[in-house]
Design a protein around this nucleic acid. Structure first.
Lengths: 202, 202
DNA sequence: AATCGGTTTAACCAATTGGTTAAATTAAGT
DNA sequence: ACTTAATTTAACCAATTGGTTAAACCGATT
């Protein structure tokens, strides 16, 4: 029943939830304080300003999604298996955190400057993916004009359907929630097949 | 030099610009009034509330992107040509309005309820695309588990790279702006080839 | 010239914003 | 028990928020 979190951690967790739900501009310090069950002045005591608190919250949210991807990209498995594992794992991860993609896309466009610090801090580095892809291209196993296109295609196919869910669910599934859940579950194999079909040597 | 727009239109155009730039929560009525070069009370005179003004602005922005897609989907051309034309046209359209995808993704997640009214009003109806795709599947010309997956794949590959540009430009191109411009230009053919490769009968 | 309806403005409103301050409370070390 | 430092609180601040109101302005009709 009692949470073992100290006040500082409790604030950051509350801030993460509220920021993801409402974005930076839509979030007030009071709402975060309410969510954390504490006084508003405490937010400023632990985190000097809204910006500072946001930066830490954003960074922590962002870092939730990096290590899993990094781990898979860096693993020594067959390239197609790597794609299959990444797509399946990532769609699962995104479905569990459905508001995060929209939140991140919103905030990077609002203030791109925060990115530089956060990306380096999170340790984002897809170079192992690029190296593996280039090797497969050189070996003639896959056909694609550039590993960068392939990388962004994979990300697009995984992330967009969740970021744009309310829109897509409405115009493609007449807003039927259950159908969209099944649809997303299907995508865990569907997207991999689509990608592999697109790039494998004929 | 003089603009032929009356005050009502001038307000809506200003509102569109500011809302797209800063989102609903990040936009104040004062900022819109400044952008339009008029008094704040005029906004309430022509559009009763911020919500009402937003709804009209959002609807107008949304409708900018629907007819072009509809037109292409409904045209009587070869299915692969249809994909090529759509991808190329849409990436161009999105590059010209780079902040719109992020704006829309942000707002549909913040308040999904507005969608119902706006989508019907905009006349979104991809059924001709689905019909054409199903026909090609039945004829054995393309291989895909569902036309819905194909539709959302196309949308993902076109929209995501622009919605997530600040992020992707940073982690894939070390934030080199010119490289990303070339990359997006390349995608106009690259994405079509990718999709067609993925679905065409082997 | 008087009047009319639509348009535009300045002044104002209560509520909320991010942030500060000084006092009260708590826990630990002596 | 006394002191000290970290923690938590209530009260407060100026600035901004969305929204209202009443008066001024303006071009057209009579």
């Amino acid at each position: 029943m009692n949470d073992p979190l100290n006040t500082e951690e409790k604030i950051l967790e509350a801030a993460k939830r509220v920021f993801v739900r409402s974005g930076f501009e839509g979030t007030s310090m009071q709402k975060i304080a309410d969510e954390a069950g504490i006084n508003k002045a405490l937010l400023h005591y632990y985190y000097r300003s809204k910006e500072k608190l946001f930066e830490q919250a954003f960074s922590k949210i962002f870092r939730q999604f990096v290590p899993r991807a990094q781990e898979i990209f860096n693993s020594e498995i067959d390239f197609f298996d790597k794609i299959r594992l990444f797509v399946s794992t990532y769609i699962d991860l995104l479905v569990e955190n459905p508001l995060v993609p929209g939140f991140i896309l919103q905030e990077i466009n609002r203030n791109p400057n925060i990115l530089y610090h956060i990306i380096t801090q999170a340790g984002v580095n897809p170079s192992f993916f690029f190296i593996h892809a280039e090797k497969e291209i050189a070996a003639g196993n896959i056909v694609i004009s550039s590993s960068k296109h392939l990388f962004i295609n994979i990300m697009s196919l995984c992330i967009f359907p969740i970021a744009a869910r309310p829109l897509m669910q409405k115009i493609v599934f007449q807003n039927d929630q259950r159908s969209y859940e099944i649809f997303l579950e299907d995508r865990k194999t569907e997207v991999s097949d689509f990608i592999i079909n697109a790039i494998k040597r004929k």
